[in-house]
Amino acid sequence: MKEQSVIVQLESGLHARPASEFVSAAQRFSSKISLQVGDKTVDGKSILGILSLAVAKGTQVVVQADGQDEEEAVRALTSILASAQ
């Protein structure tokens, strides 16, 4: 398993378009993807899971991937969270 912590830089947090983009990107990987905030962990391929976290800009999250393409998945997904829009 690979994981990386990142501070969310998305202007309006992980909502709306960025949330859908994150989920679509996660679904392209075969690895199991999780997103963790504090003591809550959700399925990174589920839009409802992502929205349930209510991730605002400046929140520290941990992206976890477990599977064959875990390195690439963590890299791609953290870069979405760290981008400004």
């Binding site: 909502h15 409802l48 899971g49 992502i50 929205l51 349930s52 976290l53 209510a54 605002a56």
Partner: peptide
């Protein structure tokens, strides 16, 4: 966002 997050859960 709080209401949305509760509903999503």
């Amino acid at each position: 966002l709080k209401i949305l997050s509760k509903l999503a859960r």
